[in-house]
Structure formats: structure tokens, C-alpha cells
């Protein structure tokens, strides 16, 4: 009986935290992030969204990573959310215009906990998730890099270690810390199901190779990149 009371109290407390978190999201985050969907239906609409859509955050992010990041945010996309808004012509190639990049606001640990609780309740639809899931397993970083880069060319847009790789997409060496494995499988399988106008192409990577790519991202995420930077 005592344990039942404690369980009910815990559920009620969690629900209250999530309610508080949704209020914070609506007041402080909704001007940059879409909280109720749908995804942008035109390129112009996409460019008006200042940050990633969050209406499926609970199916995308790892809660532990999310809560820590909200307290101490750091840039994940070297050229910002929409690179076309943050680049300028350079001598040898287009360069990131760092003067146009703004840091993400930091939350207090208490607010970050509430916001994370609220975000984890926002789930993707079955159509977005599809049927593919991560099946586990592991791969060496060197073999994973061949699948990721040589066979599929993903490094063209993504950094596989700090300072190495493409700059228009988000860094991938921390992707497995940030994202749920099933989300990664689903997004690589059909990016347009999540966001019809995303600059991420559907490369029609084979199902076995998608598993290998997610295994590779997990191997990369085990490295201590903060120490190596």
C-alpha cells in the first residue's frame, strides 16, 4: 500500500513537471520551434523556422542528453540551422559567417528537467516512424567510416570528427548521444517522412547498411570528443 502511494505520488509529480515544462516551451521556445506540427510544406516556410521542429521530440532525442544540453547548449550544426542564412563567399570556398550565428539560450537545471519531461511526451506519428528499427550490434569505426563515407558519401555534409567533414549538416560524431537509435534508422530510411523539405537527401541506403551506419554513429559517440578538441 505504501509503495502504491509512492508510485501514484511519483506519477503525479512527473505530470506536474511536464505541465510546467510545456508552459516554458510555449512561452520561451515556441517563437523558434514548432511544437505542434506539421512540418514545413515549402522551402520558404522551412527557412522561417529558426530552430528544429520539436513536435516529435520525444521520439527523437535521448532525454539524458537533452536535459544536459539545455543547461549547457553548444552548437551542433556548424553553419546554423539553415546554412544558407549563415554563409558568405570566401576566397577558396563559401565560409560560415559567424557574426550571424546566435547562441541557444541556456535553461536553469530545474527548467531543463521540466522542459525535457514535456518534450519527451511529444511523439512522432506511426507514418513518420515507419517500420524499421535498430536491431543492435556493433561495428569498427574504420569499417563504419567506409559505409558512411566511401559507399554513401554522407561525410560530404557531416563532420565525422571535430574539424573533419562537411559543414552544412549537423555533426554526426555525437549523433548517437543526442538521438534515439530507432529515430536514426527511421530518419536515414526516409528523411522526407519527417520533414519534406529537409536538405538531407534520401540516399536509399540498403536496410543492412542503415543498421551499420547507426552502429558506426554509436561507435563514434563513445569517443571523448571534448578531450580531443
Amino acid at each position: 500500500m505504501k509503495y502504491l502511494f509512492l508510485l501514484v505520488a511519483l506519477i503525479v509529480a512527473n505530470a506536474a513537471l511536464a505541465d510546467d515544462g510545456m508552459l516554458i516551451l510555449q512561452n520561451r521556445c515556441a517563437s523558434c520551434h514548432e511544437l505542434s506540427g506539421p512540418a514545413a510544406q515549402s522551402v520558404q516556410e522551412l527557412w522561417q523556422r529558426k530552430g528544429p521542429d520539436l513536435f516529435y521530440a520525444g521520439s527523437k532525442y535521448n532525454a539524458e542528453w537533452l536535459e544536459k544540453w539545455l543547461v549547457k547548449p553548444r552548437r551542433i550544426r556548424p553553419a546554423g540551422h539553415h546554412p544558407i542564412q549563415h554563409i558568405k563567399p570566401g576566397n577558396k570556398r563559401d565560409m560560415i559567417d559567424t557574426t550571424t550565428l546566435r547562441p541557444h539560450p541556456a535553461l536553469s537545471p530545474n527548467d531543463a528537467k521540466k522542459v525535457t519531461k514535456a518534450l519527451m511526451k511529444l511523439k512522432a506519428t506511426a507514418e513518420m516512424m515507419g517500420t524499421a528499427v535498430f536491431k543492435g550490434g556493433s561495428i569498427s569505426v574504420s569499417f563504419g567510416e567506409m559505409v558512411f563515407d566511401k559507399f554513401n558519401g554522407c561525410m560530404a555534409c557531416h563532420e565525422i570528427e571535430p574539424g573533419y567533414g562537411g559543414l552544412s549538416g549537423p555533426e554526426v560524431y555525437t549523433a548517437a548521444k543526442r538521438y534515439q537509435a530507432d529515430y536514426l534508422v527511421s530518419f536515414i530510411t526516409d528523411p522526407q517522412a519527417w520533414n519534406p523539405k529537409t536538405p538531407m537527401p534520401n540516399r536509399h541506403v540498403s536496410a543492412p547498411n542503415i543498421q551499420k551506419i547507426v552502429q558506426y554513429l554509436q561507435a563514434l559517440a563513445k569517443e571523448n570528443w571534448d578531450e580531443k578538441k
Binding site: P83, D94, L167
Partner: peptide
């Protein structure tokens, strides 16, 4: 743009 560049000269960000 991300690869072919702002002016299309093949010297994009990536």
C-alpha cells in the same frame, strides 16, 4: 548551395 556554392561555382561550404 551547400556543395555547389552560393554562386554555383562548385566552391560551396562543404
Amino acid at each position: 548551395w551547400q556543395c555547389h556554392g552560393m554562386t554555383g561555382d562548385g566552391m560551396g561550404l562543404n
